[in-house]
Design a protein around this nucleic acid. Structure first.
Length: 724
DNA sequence: AAAGGATGAATTTTT
DNA sequence: TTCATCCTTT
């Protein structure tokens, strides 16, 4: 049996300090590529193996299911040789963990046992039908989408209906819809993503017994990607670690790119404020990128304010400068990228070594066309997820109805697919009946089906019969078999098979895939019957609808947005669209509507996005741009991104203009001004204090009074802020 | 209920 | 330009 210290020896000193930190609040600010996942994994393993903390009394939280799976597997792998017993730390996403919690404590949380979870799409149509059914005349600045965001934002701020501002008419209407929404969710036993968190937090706050039990149980709480936590999640953390206060938060404010979804990078600072005895460890050694890439990324992010001063460094030497290409238009930008990929690949690289990154999905088309034109295999991340496909949702609506008959939208969906004579008139009858009798659409449909009537009523009779048949089967069938039954009994399979449109017919393949997924899911759980496993399956489908980008993408060039690229790394990266109003995006520089905040904060998030993109690159980084882009059918001129001017020029190599280059913009602001008087550390000269700053173009020279060498003027790239 | 036409909107999307 | 959604028509 090996000793845990063998593994620890693979860590650098700071990582080791973080891994073996004693009890109490611990904050790890981990720069891109600095091995934060390794720290998390090793810390959990160390707690279990060295500190003998029972694995099931450790809870680790991530934002994605993928990250949760990876964390769990790697901890288990690491401990496999060290411990004998099974190792099961509790690892999951915030929402997944809250769901598990609420499934057990649904009663105390005031939920129906059969509550079903709505994803974003479900929620949006739920709100839309709410507005329609209640005949609400929406003010013209409000839409179902804006109301959805209002409701979610309110919940994230822990505001219930009736607690928001009502000064303006539109605010009153927002509150009105929010109130209706809560009532309707209650009636239909529906719950949305934010509600999973809010209910959990509210229950913990309200119920002392539950709180104490949880706080007692979890000896250690660990949270990954802390810069992405929102208000609710911060509160969740406080509640979960309230007793033992053994909380490890890992994050990087420079990679906070989800503030528009309520993430508060500021939570890192707040953590320190809430836990004054916090131990802070900074991981600054980067193991991913070559030096020019790091230097450029560092210089760029330096323009942001309110950061922890930290500077990534690498022990690696060498590395080629960043290649900059100015294209005349987006087509040429794409063909340049494709040509470069072809050339570099011919020197012996796999297609999957390349990534093409962009700010908006609309930019992908040129690259897709260029790549397929040259016959290069590629995969575009994003797009419609399997479980969001129309035919899949249609089939699942029948199962949803079995699991939660109160789900009105599931009934309406099932009623429309396959077409069975139930049109808008019949649907309205169902809705009216449900309203009058104060029960669900399902019950209304059952009642109406027993009366006599025309095609609509016989359609309802059909539908009710089918769902009841499925309900019977659900008690005896396995999940895969049940899904197959849903496809057959509903008639969706038959309907698609006979469709005149071949693209509709091809949807059958997805349904076959759905059946397979059902069998696979059943395998994963212990053998349970359909009725028991169905609920779990429907939860999983919503909370973990699978990657749009499977790991089978080997042998393909990776094409994706900057957001999708976070957490990934590639040997060769093309960061495209470095144009003003593309990156930074137009919305961050111009106020377009009341919902976006165009200000420094907006630009700074764009800068972080750019930073995230650059730090994805291991060896080669290209920055490309185009002077003309087709937008809404019109050619629009673009100027170079301000971010290009923020990267020291000696790190950039122009590999081509195929248009007249625009003059470089003047330096926006003296970059290192905040460094004056700050104590810093130079790679060669050691510690010192900055006494003067000289900005020359994109480069900055710092005059530093060194402890050991006196005053010297050095390039800012070689200086980092001293650790406090 | 389905198909065709008009209309309007167009960042990013871990759960 | 392109795509999705709504509305009209049959």
């Amino acid at each position: 049996m090996r000793d845990i210290s063998d593994y620890l020896s693979a860590l650098n000193p700071r990582q080791k300090t973080a891994v073996t930190a004693e009890d109490g609040p611990l904050l790890v600010t981990a720069g891109a590529g600095s091995g934060k996942t390794a720290v998390l994994i090793n810390r959990i393993a160390w707690l279990i193996a060295e500190r003998k903390v029972p694995a099931n009394r450790i809870i680790a939280v991530t934002f994605t299911n993928k990250a949760a799976r990876e964390l769990k597997v790697r901890v288990q792998d690491l401990l496999f040789e060290i411990t004998d017993g099974p190792v099961e730390p509790i690892v999951g996403t915030f929402h997944g963990l809250c769901n598990q919690f609420l499934r057990i404590r649904y009663e105390e949380a005031g939920l129906s046992q059969h509550f079903s979870i709505m994803d974003q799409d479900d929620q949006k149509s739920f709100i839309a039908s709410l507005i329609k059914d209640n005949r609400i005349d929406l003010l013209n600045i409000l839409t179902p989408k804006s109301l959805q965001s209002y409701i979610n934002k309110s919940k994230e701020a822990r505001r219930r209906a009736g607690q928001g501002d009502t000064y303006y008419p539109h605010q009153r209407q927002q509150e009105q819809v929010y109130e209706l929404y809560e009532v309707e969710c209650e009636k239909q036993s529906r719950i949305d993503f934010a509600e999973l968190m809010l209910r959990t937090v509210e229950l913990m706050e309200r119920n002392t017994q539950v709180r104490q039990h949880i706080q007692e149980r979890f000896l250690h709480v660990l949270i990954d990607e802390f810069q992405d936590t929102n208000e609710l999640q911060f509160r969740w953390m406080e509640l979960f670690c309230g007793k033992h206060r053994n909380i490890t938060a890992v994050g990087d404010e420079d990679q906070s790119i989800y503030s528009w979804r309520g993430a508060l990078a500021w939570n890192l600072k707040r953590f320190e404020a809430v836990y004054p005895d916090t131990r802070i460890i900074r991981l600054e050694q980067n193991y991913r990128s070559t030096r020019p890439i790091l230097d450029a990324a560092n210089a760029l992010i330096e323009f942001n304010s309110n950061r922890y001063e930290k500077k990534l460094w690498t022990g690696k030497s060498g590395g080629s400068p960043i290649k900059l290409f100015n294209a005349a238009d987006a087509d040429r930008e794409a063909s340049f990228v494709v040509d470069q990929i072809n050339q570099i690949a011919s020197l012996g690289r796999d297609w999957s070594d390349f990534a093409v990154l962009y700010r908006t999905n609309a930019q992908s088309r040129n690259f897709e066309e260029g790549l397929s034109h040259k016959g290069i295999p590629f995969r575009v991340y994003g797009g419609v997820r399997f479980y969001h496909r129309r035919e899949v949702k249609d089939v699942l609506s029948y199962l949803q109805l079995v699991a939660n008959p109160n789900a009105n939208d599931a009934l309406l969906r099932a009623a429309g697919m396959p077409p069975c004579g139930i049109g808008s008139v019949t649907k309205r009858r169902v809705a009216t009946r449900a309203e009058v009798q104060e029960f669900s659409f399902w019950e209304a449909a059952v009642e109406l089906a027993e009366e006599s009537g025309g095609t609509g009523v016989s359609g309802l009779r059909n539908l009710v019969g089918r769902v009841n048949e499925l309900k019977d089967k659900s008690t005896e069938y396995s999940l895969g078999k049940l899904i197959k039954a849903a496809i057959d009994i509903s008639g969706i399979g038959e309907h698609l098979k006979n469709h005149s449109d071949p693209s509709e017919r091809s949807r059958i393949e997805n349904l076959d895939e759905l059946i397979n997924a059902g069998y696979a899911f059943q395998q994963l759980q212990e053998s349970q019957l359909g009725s028991e496993i169905l609920g779990e399956y429907l939860d999983t489908v919503v909370l973990d609808p699978g990657d749009t980008h499977d790991d089978v993408s080997q042998g393909h060039v990776q094409v994706m947005t900057l957001h999708a690229a976070k957490g990934l790394e590639f040997p060769v990266v093309f960061l495209t669209g470095l144009d003003e109003n593309v990156l930074p995006h137009f919305f961050s520089t111009n106020r377009v509507n009341e919902f976006d905040d165009s200000n420094d904060a907006g630009i700074e998030e764009e800068r972080r996005l750019c930073y995230v993109g650059m730090t994805r690159a291991e060896e080669v980084l290209y920055l490309t741009r185009a002077s003309n882009r087709m937008v809404r059918g019109k050619y629009t001129r673009y100027t170079r991104s301000r971010f290009l001017a923020e990267i020291p020029r000696h790190l950039l190599e122009n590999v081509g203009f195929d248009s007249v280059p625009e003059p470089i913009r003047p330096q926006p602001e003296a970059p290192f001004s905040r460094w004056l008087g700050v104590s810093v550390r130079h790679q060669k000269f050691g510690p010192g204090i900055v006494i003067a700053i000289d900005n020359q173009g994109a480069e900055s020279f710092l005059t530093v009074e060194f402890e050991k060498y006196g005053a010297k003027t050095v390039l800012s790239n070689f200086v980092s802020i001293d650790e406090v």
